[in-house]
Write a protein that binds this DNA or RNA. Structure first.
Lengths: 252, 252
DNA sequence: ATGAATTTGTACGTATGTATA
DNA sequence: TTATACATACGTACAAATTCA
């Protein structure tokens, strides 16, 4: 039914666990169309045999991809390839709309505040770093190009060593993590995004022409490089009365 | 070090998988203070022996609780009980069709209200249907299986012709859109999801033991079948003070 | 600083259950 | 009814990280 396992021979690198290597390998095969969206993977035991690993390891790998929404499995049927809605490459690639990349290019972030801060307490916890670590902090309103009024406020925390990346930029029109990638040579491997309800802080309310304490949607993003190193941390406040974070979860 | 496994003897119910029963059991022991926040669980092999299951099953159970942020584990140290309410630790991360599927299986939706309503005004606009269209409406709190307190409240709007699908179900343990798919033969092709900040309505606050007007995260989902037909509309309210909608945009 | 003990992580094997086609 | 394929659950062994004597 599900056909052959194709050529799954692969030279496994060392260091990273086998099941993660398998997960990466399977995802490559999904990306290059070997396993198209909507199709069924070969069954677990076939994959195990083809890759020369145990079925247990295959299940660990599939479990990873299922947690990311890339695969779904049904008893008695098989494991289906789903549309990678939240895979960041698809959201950030040139041909997809609504991604952060396009978002950054269609808007302007006006830096109004620059200072060096220490991450403490709740901020440090949200950032996932030890309290006391220093960051270069920037903040300001973000406009749709040409608009008179900003529609949200951004805060950015950068490694102080990356300060030079933004020092000469009063108005940012591209995605900051792209600049960071260029400056460091590192690559953003993962973006962890949280969306929560919040009350609007004073400085945000001021820029957005609202009242402090108004309803707001607070989005935080942690940009992780290789080795889960935190490259950038960003916070975005949207007015709560007229903004919704929208996603489409398409299946097949 | 971490002491005895206490009296972990338990009569396992049938039906639900063993590892989920173990997860519920461990969580009870956390809730009642047997394993206080900050302490280490007995080591996996001790738990396995005490409960009369294999270490593999224990690990599956712990994995469940780790995904919910209730436990963290470190190699060479042990498995630590984390603060359950500690702010953004409780996160909702079902960001794909498969994620919603698994989410529904790990939780219980207790239907408390059933009535026929007409979509009007803002509701009709959010649903994207003409005002006056009739729907079968259900609502109630949603629990993590075994929990005493609900963590969110669900509202569901169904085509009245699909009423029989849920009429005999007091407690839902699967994804409703799956039942709808089975009943109609149609398939959910797309899920449009919005996340916004909101003030908590009265009936929601009541079930969640909060005050009306409290901060809330409101998620709405439109389940579209073939031809963009609206099969189901669902609203989910989370307490805003300790909940975040989490997405990981990974690139592997 | 070294090494032993501890504890989770990874990986293998095997068998049986259950939903689906 | 039968075959299929994932789900659950048992077992074993060793690796890797941490802690502590």
């Amino acid at each position: 039914m599900s056909g052959q396992a194709a050529d799954l021979t692969v030279a496994f690198a060392d260091g990273t666990p086998l099941y993660l290597q398998v997960a990466q390998h399977v995802q490559k095969l999904i990306d290059d169309g070997t396993y198209p969206v909507g199709s069924l993977l070969p069954r677990e035991s076939d994959l195990a045999e083809a890759l020369g690993v145990s079925r247990h390891t295959i299940r660990q790998a599939i479990s990873q991809l299922r947690q990311r929404g890339l695969l779904t499995a049904r008893k008695g049927v098989g494991t289906r390839v789903e549309a990678p809605q939240d895979d960041w490459r698809s959201r950030f690639s040139a041909n997809s709309r609504g991604g952060l990349f396009d978002f950054a290019r269609a808007t302007e972030l006006h830096f109004k505040t620059r200072k060096t801060v220490e991450a403490r307490g709740q901020i440090a916890a949200e950032m996932g770093v030890r309290p006391g670590r220093k960051f270069h902090y920037l903040s300001g309103p973000r406009y749709y190009a040409g608009d008179a009024k900003p529609f949200c406020v951004n805060e950015v925390y950068l490694d102080p060593r990356l300060r030079h990346v933004v020092d000469d930029i009063p108005i940012l029109r591209v995605a900051l993590f792209n600049l960071v990638e260029e400056a460091t040579g590192d690559r953003v491997m993962e973006i962890q995004q949280d969306v929560r309800a919040a009350y609007m802080p004073d400085h945000v309310a001021h820029w957005l022409d609202r009242e402090p304490g108004d309803l707001a949607l607070k989005m935080t993003r942690r940009y992780l490089g290789s080795g889960a190193r935190l490259l950038e941390y960003a916070v975005q406040y949207h007015p709560g009365d007229n903004f919704a974070y929208h996603t489409t979860l398409s299946s097949i």
